[in-house]
Design a protein around this nucleic acid. Structure first.
Lengths: 357, 357
DNA sequence: GACTGGCACTCAACTGGGCAGAGTGCCAGA
DNA sequence: TCTGGCACTCTGCCCAGTTGAGTGCCAGTC
């Protein structure tokens, strides 16, 4: 019927979806995201026009909103409510509409100062994670500098009983791994000293993943009677190197989960459960690109319990190499520019601190 | 007026509060605690009589309740509501009305089996804390075996640079502490070996707190030129021994906080905050009596954020000595007998596992 | 063709009254 | 000392009516 009323009978497709997203629509989306993050409430056309000078009337904004909704960037909880960004909307916001908000100079000084007070590796990690939680007011996760990228600083062998040794591996990042070794035959002090010296001579300074290759032929250099013991020690050492699971992480800011939303126990429970699963968190951080900052939003996260959260993560490292990851977990409705700024800044300064020590 | 009606005119004080708590009143309190823990709702006189055969009518129970309320063991959220136990009521319940509920044989087997799968100390602690959280469905806390009660198994010195050493302390509980030592003068391999041998000879097997006394005179036995370096090493070693703060704890079951109550964010927030403060948790466990089980209820807990929770804790250890504490934190409205049973059982089996390894 | 003002419509959220039910305290009587 | 009965108090729930924010659509203007 409306079609008939057109004099020329031509069907004019005025559905907004038929047009590409133009500048103003993006501006509307940006404004929606900003307002929603601030107020936590669905944002309507009128309020939007009042708070941002978009230069158009609410009615126009409404048309734009209808278009954005059709494209799946925003959605309405119910008719006659304002709009809420979807995961897709946040994605567009992060990719094209937002800029990482740099920390102010005083903030940067404070970060640096706080991290410089650390006395050892544990303390660095502990301070980092607390700082990040405090800056972003969200849940922070920091992975301990991984063994993979580290180098061997020292390998120590300690005889506990004649057939029982303790193997201690010290890396350049200050991390210490210890393992018990049950030898098939008693190991004398002479052999122990010899083995210790050769291990350090050959593997000292090596990247951890290269160590097995470097030490492969070590048993051949020993008296045949001693070889079983040497092999056992090597086996344990290689195990320790390979054991990626041992990667530890530290958490802080779980109390910030209480700021999550209204529908409480339902949202928070799966998140708390996820946070207890080191495996989940490690995988989460593991998916982070090495150098660039990674933002995963809502359903982009593989783990179901975190589908109503977003994760901002980035690698950090001493020097130019990234040795581990850190990040924050918060509601999808988070301040992305600010969070990204804080994450980036903290990662940078931790890297510096590690490089110095 | 009622007084006048008595023929002899004697004033008979019939206020319930004037009488000591007799058997039935205690039974009523016990029933109230049990019902409230089960239902989470104020319990009334009628329901109480129906569910427990107290052998009296609701009206009688009401009188008893009035007495209990006057004594401060229970209270009413509002007129015309049932009663809720107070902290004082729970205290009486725990002290006089409840018995620790022992684990069943299959449960004990399962606990033992689960803990036996652990591969090292970290794993023992991790398994313990998870197990405890799962059994009690509350937040579990386990303190790492403390240095204080442990003995020295081995002290290792590693030369990193001529003036930089790494000191590694290994205890009989399998714990490893490392410290960097900056020496005032270069330390040769000969001195290092000598020092290492003497340290182990003199301190090996000692209780950690006794080590400073034992090693006090060590520098005197060395060449005067070497004494500064030896002293430095000792200083660092003693620091490491003294550093109680370094006591670590492990947490699990925070997701169980979601089962806390109705008035959510308000209750849970301070608890989450407290759980992040290792200091608070350590002090909490520190107040536990060494061997006996300790139950602290609501306001008995010094830390304000935990005033709506109860803490059940106990020491555990290898052999007969307690080396650390463990416990659970839950709402004051918890199943005390069951929780205490689980805590006791887990502590016992961890002790056994540690003694064996 | 793009924007705007106006209009009818929808729906969540709030309000107030009325009702049911659980629970109490008190009292007189067994 | 206990019990049954009674009047009373509250909370929780349901229901209907109202408000207000927000929408979609349309006709008109630049």
């Amino acid at each position: 019927m409306p079609d008939e009323s057109k004099p020329d009978g031509r069907l004019i497709d005025t559905r907004p979806s038929a047009r590409p997203l133009d500048e103003r629509r993006l501006a509307v989306l940006r404004a929606i995201v900003q307002d929603y993050v601030g107020t936590e409430e669905p944002v309507g056309s009128k309020a939007l026009v009042e708070r941002h000078n978009l230069g158009v009337s609410p009615a126009t904004v409404r048309n734009d909103m209808a278009a954005l909704e059709e494209e799946g960037y925003i959605h309405q909880p119910h008719t006659s409510a304002g709009r809420i960004p979807t995961d897709k909307g946040y994605r567009l916001f992060v990719d094209r509409l937002a800029e990482v908000k740099p920390m102010t100079a005083p903030e940067r000084r404070a970060i640096r100062h706080f991290l410089e007070g650390a006395v050892d590796l544990d303390d660095v990690v502990a301070r980092t994670v607390r700082l990040l939680a405090q800056l972003t007011r969200q849940v922070a996760v920091v992975q301990y500098p991984s063994l993979t990228r580290s180098t061997v600083r020292h390998i120590e062998l300690v005889s506990l009983t004649p057939t029982k040794l303790m193997l201690v591996l010290i890396t350049n990042t200050g991390r210490v791994e210890q393992r018990m070794v049950d030898c098939p035959a008693p190991v004398g002090e002479a052999l122990l000293g010899d083995l210790r010296a050769r291990l350090n001579g050959m593997a000292g300074g090596c990247r951890l993943p290269e160590v097995p290759t470097v030490l492969e032929d070590l048993p051949a250099g020993f008296d045949p009677a001693d070889r079983p013991a040497v092999s056992t020690v090597l086996t344990v050492l290689f195990e320790a190197l390979a054991e990626q699971n041992e990667e530890r992480i530290m958490l802080a800011g779980t109390a910030n989960l209480t700021r999550f939303g209204h529908d409480f126990p339902l949202t928070i429970r799966p998140v708390l459960e996820a946070l207890e699963e080191q495996v989940v968190l490690l995988r989460l951080l593991g998916e982070t690109a090495d150098s660039a900052m990674t933002v995963r939003i809502g359903h982009e996260i593989a783990y179901e319990g975190l589908n109503s959260t977003s994760v901002v993560s980035v690698g950090y490292g001493s020097g130019d190499q990234s040795v581990a990851k850190l990040g924050v977990i918060g509601p999808t409705r988070m301040d992305y520019p600010g969070t990204m700024g804080a994450v980036r800044a903290v990662a940078r300064y931790v890297g510096q601190i590690l490089a110095e020590s």
